[in-house]
Design a binder for these strands. Structure first.
Length: 866
DNA sequence: GCATCCCGCCATCTT
DNA sequence: AAGATGGCGGGATGC
């Protein structure tokens, strides 16, 4: 098969034997030079003739042609087209949508390298996500709308539109003169970093459950194709005539500003990449090639022909997450919850210092052990997946943190610029229905349209906002970088990670925006227009003012009030408790680190609080994620922590990931909920649930380690545990086994790795947490069940819900689990987690109970840190 | 001659 | 160390 399928090579080389050594040789030779190729072709022809055998004969003729096949036939765009034809636009998530790079490369008869190019671009649009080494999961266009909406928001936040204008002007100016190099002068000075930072700016926007895994990938340099692709798309989404010329795009993408001149080489390289990306985008029918006639002449450009309208973030989320839609009801509840959460956030609560609990240490140990087990565990593939997931966790966590920070910022600053709309909606959460997803908490903050969060923060910052603290927070987080965009969408908040890479001292720093601002300034300089950043700054201010001006906090507060106060109170109480526990417990060293930082940070108490909250949330999330991969979770956490330190003023440089928090947590939610219900039965409502759950949830599990009960979950990761749990869940052991297996394997592949992914959304989590009712539904929806490692406190767990392990198990199983009731609870909790927001909220809520899982992270963290 | 962009070397990351 | 990824830019191809 292979040979035949492989066609070209086979044919050429071995017309006779496709695979024969000879053929290979021929191939090599042909590759050597055109002349040789020609000869080869001729030969091949002959061969072909002989071989005629090849079914592909046509192609054979083509063989010659093959050799010759024009580049067009080998173009990335065509290749991408072939690739896309192999998968449905909207794959059934329930199915295995695994993509094996090797298989694809073989089937398409191309080198792997080419596949990477395609995958990177598709990944940037969240059409695929890496599930493991050599493995991707196909999502098709199911998340495309959401992704585009997010990218648009991000692009707006970054003021790409302005940048483009500036560059265009600059180019025009230059044209008049000599492209001279004069400009450089200005620029250089302006932004030392600009260049680099600009690059840094790149950030990868992640969707809720999808990409975490990429984490490992991310580790690389996030620069490149992936990020470049997103930025490129952003340019289209923010430019008015949706036409972007290559040179302008290249300049923006190079961080350049001025520097542009610096390297023509760099520019050339960038253009090359843009062509690569453009080819894929063209095959996706998102852009078309056009020419812009400039004064000088024609310039290559691309026009956006993809969707123009995206659902608002909120909408997107809803629409996007099919699962979510299911839980709308839940969402509503959530909204209320969110409000509460907001309130919490806003509330000056006490700060928390994060300290570890002694118990945590134990947990950590156990966790480590679990990890080992897991790692060693059988299904290598699975493991890989797991590991991946764990890796991904980091990113996830990071994202979460970022999101949290962002949210906080938004709330405080009310920046939430982009989201504005959403924000408004959110604000009303009480009304609630909107946000279902998650965004919960965060968004609301934003309020009215704050435009760029970043900007806001930078500018308005501290002083302006009482909330100002928020700003700080971001900064703190900034280390991480998290910039949140949460509000933007109603639902999904996304977090942007900035890479600390280069430290810029920016006062502004915190939010990405600041970085942007910087950039913009640079540009301006170049342009020569207004000096420096003021322009941008002004804009920002104005924007922020106009949009966000109002105090977010205020708004939120009211909302909260509106929402059920009781709930809020309860939540708060819980959060507090939770926090306390968590704080103490939080395993991750980073968390610890963070704490101090946060505390120290200028933000002040208020800020710290928010930070803490965010952290907590964050932690929770992590925990959740962690649970699935206990290990992973930890590490990630670590990563997260980082933020704090950096926060400082560092900067927020650009690079980061944007992670939208999606709500969709398909999987676990439903199941979880169900299980919950079953287990808790009594606890009908969330409140109850929270509280009871823990206890309910298998006390046994709880074991010594408080949080750890989750551990059980851990085990889940480990096959044995999992099995047990599964049993619990599903009475049928065999089924369980299957599940476990699936989980192992599947998980890794599908959601698994990221259990959190599955969890999708925070929303779910939040739902579960917050809303008693809704939550469950969501969980059920998904077929997956999460097993969480436990959180010390039962209840909290639920809130945060760290899913320990995700089972791809069938829903039935999920549901069945009752037996597992206890365990389930824990699971539930975890799963729920997802929604960072929820977590956030809860934290805000002060759910003390949650404490939980921290330990795990700690372990991870520690290790990883090391 | 310039626009495109394939190809694959080789640095990085992971495992 | 081997394998997986993917940055990067030479240089071929097309117009």
């Amino acid at each position: 098969m292979g040979p035949l399928t492989t066609p070209k090579k086979g044919r050429e080389a071995g017309s006779v034997d496709p695979w024969t050594p000879t053929s290979n040789l021929k191939m090599l030779i042909s590759a050597a030079s055109p002349d040789i190729r020609n000869r080869e072709k001729e030969l091949c022809m002959d061969n072909d003739g002989r071989e005629g055998v090849d079914p592909t004969q046509d192609t054979d003729n083509g063989e010659e042609s093959e050799k010759w096949i024009s580049r067009k036939d080998k173009s990335l765009g065509l290749l991408c087209h072939k690739f896309l034809s192999r998968y449905p636009d909207c794959p059934n998530p329930a199915l295995n949508n695994d993509i094996c790079l090797d298989d694809v490369a073989t089937e398409l008869n191309v080198e792997r390298r080419r596949i990477y190019d395609i995958m990177n671009v598709l990944e940037s649009l969240h059409m695929v996500s890496r599930s493991a080494k050599n493995r991707y999961t196909w999502h098709g266009r199911s998340k495309l709308a959401q992704t585009l909406a997010i990218l648009k928001q991000v692009g707006e936040e970054h003021r790409y539109g302005q940048q483009m204008q500036q560059i265009r002007q600059r180019l025009l100016d230059k044209e008049f003169e000599f492209d001279g190099e004069e400009k450089e002068n200005k620029e250089v000075v302006v932004d030392p970093d600009s260049g680099e930072q600009g690059q840094r700016e790149l950030f990868f926007v992640e969707l809720p459950g999808v990409e975490f895994k990429a984490a490992s990938v991310n580790s690389r340099k996030d620069k490149s194709l992936r990020v470049m692709s997103q930025k490129f798309v952003m340019l289209f989404l923010v430019s008015n005539p949706r036409v972007v010329s290559l040179d302008v795009a290249a300049k923006i993408l190079i961080g350049e500003d001025q520097g542009a001149d610096q390297d023509k080489n760099k520019f050339k390289t960038k253009v090359r990449r843009l062509y690569d990306i453009a080819n894929v985008l063209r095959s996706l029918k998102l852009i078309e090639k056009v020419h812009v006639t400039a004064e000088r002449g024609r310039k290559p450009a691309f026009e956006w022909v993809g969707p123009e309208e995206f659902p608002q973030v909120k909408d997107l989320e809803d629409s996007t997450s099919e699962c979510q839609s299911k839980n709308k009801g839940i969402l509503e509840s959530r909204s209320s919850v969110e409000n509460c959460a907001k309130k919490l956030f806003s509330s000056p609560g006490a700060k928390r210092s994060f300290t570890r609990h002694p118990s945590l240490i134990k947990l950590a140990k156990s966790i480590q052990e679990d990890r080992r087990k897991i790692n060693s565990a059988p299904s290598s593939p699975v493991k890989s997946s797991l590991s991946d997931s764990s890796n991904s966790d980091f990113p996830n966590k990071m994202a979460q943190l970022a999101a949290i920070c962002k949210i906080q910022l938004d709330q405080e600053s009310g920046t939430g610029p982009k989201h504005q709309k959403p924000a408004a909606v959110r604000v009303e959460p009480t009304s609630g229905s909107m946000e279902p997803p998650q965004a919960p908490s965060l968004t609301p903050t934003q309020e009215p349209g704050v435009n760029t969060t970043v900007h806001l923060t930078s500018h308005t910052p501290l002083a302006a906002l009482p909330a100002g603290s928020v700003a700080y927070i971001p900064a703190q987080c900034s280390s991480l970088i998290p910039v949140l965009l949460p509000q933007q969408r109603g639902g999904g908040p996304y977090a942007v990670y900035l890479q600390p890479s280069s430290p810029r001292p920016n006062p502004l720093a915190r939010p990405q925006p600041s970085s942007f601002a910087v950039r913009s300034m640079t540009f301006e300089d170049k342009t020569g227009q207004s000096p420096t950043g003021q322009y941008s700054l002004k804009r920002l201010h104005s924007d922020s003012v106009s949009e966000s001006s109002p105090s977010k906090a205020k708004r939120t507060d009211p909302n909260f009030k509106d929402t059920s106060p009781k709930l809020c109170e309860i939540l708060q109480a819980r959060l507090k408790a939770h926090r306390a526990s968590q704080l103490s417990s939080r395993p991750s060293p980073r968390a610890l680190h963070l704490d101090p930082e946060f505390v120290n940070t200028p933000g002040g108490a208020a800020v710290t609080q928010t930070l803490e909250q965010s952290l907590e949330t964050f932690l929770d999330r992590e925990d959740k994620t962690a649970n699935s991969d206990s290990e992973a979770g930890l590490t990630p956490v670590r990563a997260v922590p980082l933020t704090p330190g950096q926060l400082n003023t560092e900067t927020l440089v650009p690079a980061g990931y944007l992670i939208p928090i999606s709500q969709q947590s398909f999987i676990s939610d439903k199941e979880v909920q169900v299980s919950w219900r079953e287990s808790n039965k009594a606890s009908t409502q969330t409140y109850n649930i929270y509280q009871t759950p823990t206890a309910g949830s298998r006390p046994s599990l709880a074991q010594e380690i408080t949080p750890t009960s989750i551990r059980l979950n851990k085990p889940a990761t480990a096959s044995p545990h999992v099995l047990q749990q599964a049993h619990r869940l599903n009475s049928p052991s065999p089924a369980i086994l299957n599940f476990t297996l699936q989980n192992l394997g599947l998980i890794s592949g599908s959601s698994p790795g990221n259990s959190f992914t599955v969890p999708q959304t925070p929303e779910c989590a939040s739902n579960t947490l917050h809303s008693p009712l809704p939550g469950p539904l969501a969980l059920q929806q998904r077929g997956m069940v999460f097993i969480k490692p436990v959180s010390p406190v039962p209840i909290q767990q639920s809130v945060n819900g760290q899913p320990v392990a995700l089972f791809s198990v069938q829903q039935p199983l999920m549901t069945t689990p009752k037996g597992g009731g206890l365990p389930q609870h824990s699971f539930f909790h975890t799963p729920v987690q997802l929604s960072p927001l929820a977590a956030m909220v809860t934290t805000g809520g002060h759910l003390a109970p949650k404490t939980v899982y921290i330990p795990q992270r700690k372990l991870d963290v520690a290790t990883e840190d090391s």
